[in-house]
Amino acid sequence: DTFTFTLDGIEVRLHGASEELIKTIEELLKRDIRWEELEKWIREWEK
């Protein structure tokens, strides 16, 4: 599955994202998160 969203005018596609990761990103997007914050968060998630 591919999860697609737009952040700061950039279309982002995550391939093979888990349901948990998708739900977490959706929550972060509701908080009007900035790209830099999401990028940092995703790097931490990957560890």
Rank of each mutant, 00 (worst) to 15 (best):
L14N: 00
D32F: 10
E19M: 14
E27H: 08
E36K: 10
R13P: 02
T4K: 04
R31Y: 12
W45T: 03
D1T: 11
L14V: 13
E19T: 14
L21F: 11
G9V: 04
K30I: 09
E39A: 10
R43T: 08
K30L: 12
K30V: 09
F5V: 04
I10E: 06
L7I: 15
L28E: 02
R43W: 09
R13L: 09
L29K: 02
L14Y: 03
D1C: 15
S18F: 03
K47M: 13
R34T: 13
L21S: 04
L29M: 06
G16Y: 08
H15L: 11
K23A: 13
R43K: 09
E46I: 15
E19G: 10
E39V: 13
I33A: 09
A17Y: 06
K23G: 08
E26C: 06
E19Q: 13
T24K: 15
I33Y: 05
R13G: 04
E26N: 12
L38K: 01
T4Q: 06
E20F: 13
I33D: 03
L38I: 05
L14K: 00
A17W: 07
T6E: 08
R43A: 08
I22L: 05
I22P: 00
A17C: 10
E26M: 15
F5N: 00
G16F: 08
I25T: 01
E19V: 15
I22Y: 03
K30R: 13
E39D: 08
I42K: 01
T2I: 11
K30H: 07
G9Y: 04
E27F: 12
F5Q: 00
L28I: 07
L14T: 01
E46A: 13
E44K: 06
L7W: 11
T6G: 02
K40L: 12
W41V: 12
E26G: 09
S18E: 04
S18T: 14
T4A: 07
H15S: 12
E36F: 12
R13K: 15
G16H: 11
I25H: 00
W45D: 02
E37M: 08
K23N: 12
E20L: 12
T6Q: 08
I42R: 02
L28V: 06
K40D: 05
E26P: 02
D1L: 15
W41G: 02
L29D: 01
R31S: 14
R31C: 06
R34E: 05
L14F: 06
F3A: 01
T6W: 14
T6A: 04
L38H: 00
T4V: 13
T6H: 07
G9D: 06
L29S: 02
D1K: 13
I22S: 02
R43N: 08
D32E: 10
T2E: 10
I42L: 14
G16V: 05
W41H: 11
I22N: 01
K47D: 10
E37V: 09
K23M: 11
G9S: 03
T24R: 14
T4L: 06
R31D: 07
W41M: 11
E27G: 10
R31L: 11
E46T: 13
A17M: 07
A17F: 09
I10V: 14
K47P: 11
V12F: 14
K47N: 13
E36D: 13
K40V: 11
W41L: 12
L29V: 07
T24C: 08
G16E: 05
K47S: 12
D8A: 04
I22E: 02
E27V: 12
E37L: 06
R13Y: 14
I10W: 04
I10A: 03
H15G: 05
I42F: 08
E37F: 10
W41N: 04
I33S: 04
L7M: 06
E36N: 10
E26T: 14
E44M: 08
R43Q: 10
E44I: 08
W41K: 08
W45R: 03
S18K: 04
E19D: 11
L38P: 00
A17S: 04
F3W: 10
K47F: 12
F3E: 00
G16T: 05
I33T: 06
R34Y: 04
E37I: 06
R34Q: 07
E37W: 09
I42A: 03
I42Q: 01
E19H: 11
I33R: 03
F5A: 01
E46R: 06
L28S: 04
T24A: 15
D32A: 10
D1I: 15
I42Y: 07
T24Y: 09
A17D: 02
T4D: 04
E11V: 11
L7R: 02
T6S: 06
E27D: 11
F3M: 02
D32P: 08
L21Y: 05
D1Y: 14
E36Q: 12
T24Q: 14
R43P: 03
G16S: 06
L28M: 14
T4N: 05
K30E: 08
L38T: 00
E19S: 12
G9W: 03
T2Q: 05
W45V: 05
E46N: 14
D8K: 01
E27Q: 11
I10G: 01
L38V: 05
V12H: 12
